[in-house]
Amino acid sequence: MRSSDKSDYALRGVSYLVVTVFTIFCLLPFVLIVSASVSEESQIMEHGFGLLPRGFSLTAYEFIFKSPRQLIGSYVVTITMTVFGTAIGLLIIAMTGYALQRKDFPLRNGISFFIYFTTLFSAGLAPTYLWVARELGLRGNYLAVFLQLLMTPWLIILMKNFVRSVPNEITESGKVDGAGDFRIFLRLILPMMKPALATTGLFLALGYWNEWYLSSLYLGSTVEFKPLQYYLYNVINTANALKSSMAGNNVTVTQLPTNTLKMASAVVATGPIVLLYPFVQRYFVSGITVGAVKG
């Protein structure tokens, strides 16, 4: 018993230490961004960013909040997509995951491979674009982004694996009671899958929240409000894109976003989710714990 206690303390001590160090490591860049966003532009030009603000100025924030319409619109678009996408995606993924792990489902291997195969071969940008934009007619339509993010093979297989921890007897007992498969899933299985749903839902939500690439392809400037991260990408990447391409040699761009404006935009676009995360996390962690007690 004594040796086990000692090793317990040792492991716990190491854990606290490593986690603390890693946490600081993850926090540093944020400090850099926030401090740059409240620095004075002239100071940044001369000395670069620092962990402490160089000078102090809220000009960048004033500039953003003078006309917050775009930003608010982007928030609304992203939040809407995230909420609905996560809910719908989660339901489909959970259904599929459950069906695919049912041992009495003869098609499960076939369908699993059907889904996994898409990670090995994808059509690439141009063919996919032609299909989605031209044949499905989704160019300039939020649905092009919304639908394509609904699920990934990885999340389905992950879910399938999670569902395995729900004892088979539950399905069997449901069958004995004469319930249909869907009813079993909805009434008996879903409530037991909280940790899986929390994890998968978190990944789905993050997928929607961080999306900018599909928006760049399918939305561009055709929509009035860009999804949040694409909006941010536009603010941050303009100078970069001009400098690394032929346009930079050929056009005279009058106004590029300043460093402080870029950083302030980043703070405004990511700040709220960071503040919100602990609240979401509470449900997430308790969901896992509830599931774990049972499982």
């Binding site: 674009y129 934009a133 561009g220 400037s221 536009n234 303009t238 970069n240 894109a241 001009l242």
Partner: peptide
């Protein structure tokens, strides 16, 4: 006017043509 914005102008320009919009 339909804008091709600088941040990803090459992609934007090319897919706009590709789309056959």
């Amino acid at each position: 006017p339909h804008y091709i914005e600088w941040a990803d102008w090459q992609t934007q320009y090319n897919v706009a043509l590709l789309s056959g919009d």
